[in-house]
Amino acid sequence: MFERTDAGAGGQVGFFFEGSRVEARAGDTVAAAILAHGERSVRTTPASGAPRGPFCFMGTCFECLVEIDGVPNRQACMVVVAEGMDVRRQEGAREATP
């Protein structure tokens, strides 16, 4: 189970996940904020549609791919939340973007 270890300091940042507003700590990655919000799945696999979620938190496994502000294939563990950001689950495979 994902759980924060301290109360933390700093401000709050609001973003949207699947259309719902989520409050995160300033400086959180998208992956950390989504997990702290209680969500476990951020994408589905192209082959079976199985749910997948953040795993390594250092950008090597690509399990946390999401769509951010309309751009697919973003690693949620490598992007810091920003006010008003729109994050969506990535369903299956998406075209690679340059």
Rank of each mutant, 00 (worst) to 15 (best):
A32N: 03
A96N: 09
R40D: 11
G8Q: 06
E23A: 15
Q75L: 12
T44V: 07
A33V: 06
P72D: 04
A24G: 11
M85D: 03
P46M: 12
F17C: 04
V80Y: 04
V30Q: 03
G92H: 12
A31D: 02
A36P: 04
R94P: 00
E39C: 02
D86W: 00
R4Q: 12
E63M: 06
G70H: 04
D6K: 13
G27Q: 03
R40C: 02
F17H: 05
S48D: 15
C77G: 06
G19M: 05
E18G: 11
G84H: 05
R25I: 01
M78N: 06
C61Q: 12
P72C: 08
N73C: 08
E23S: 15
Q75H: 07
A76N: 01
P51A: 11
A36F: 01
R21P: 05
D6R: 11
R52Y: 01
V80D: 02
P46F: 13
V13Y: 06
T97D: 07
R40I: 03
M78G: 02
C64F: 01
T45W: 09
F57P: 01
A76L: 01
G19A: 06
D6H: 13
D28I: 03
G27K: 09
E23D: 12
V42S: 00
F62C: 11
L35M: 15
G8S: 10
E3Q: 15
A7M: 07
R94F: 13
F57A: 02
A9V: 15
D69R: 08
F62A: 14
S20L: 12
G59K: 09
V87K: 02
R52W: 04
R25Q: 14
T29A: 02
D86Q: 14
F2C: 01
A76F: 01
P98I: 04
F57Y: 14
F2G: 02
M1W: 07
F15E: 06
A24I: 07
V30M: 05
G27R: 10
G84I: 09
V42M: 02
G11C: 09
F55G: 07
M58W: 10
E18D: 13
N73T: 09
M1T: 11
I34M: 04
E83L: 04
Q12M: 13
E3F: 13
R89N: 00
A24D: 10
V81Y: 07
C64E: 03
E67V: 15
V22S: 05
P46K: 09
H37K: 11
P98Q: 10
F17Q: 02
F15V: 10
C56M: 12
L35F: 06
F2S: 07
F15R: 07
E91W: 04
D69K: 06
G49A: 12
F15A: 09
L65E: 08
P54W: 02
Q12P: 03
Q75K: 13
V80I: 15
Q75I: 01
G27H: 09
F15Y: 13
V81F: 08
A9E: 13
P54H: 05
G10N: 12
A93T: 03
G53L: 03
V80N: 05
R94A: 14
A50T: 12
D28V: 02
F57S: 05
F16K: 14
E67F: 00
E23Y: 10
G8I: 05
T29P: 07
M58C: 12
G10Q: 13
A24C: 12
R43D: 01
A24V: 07
T29N: 03
F17Y: 13
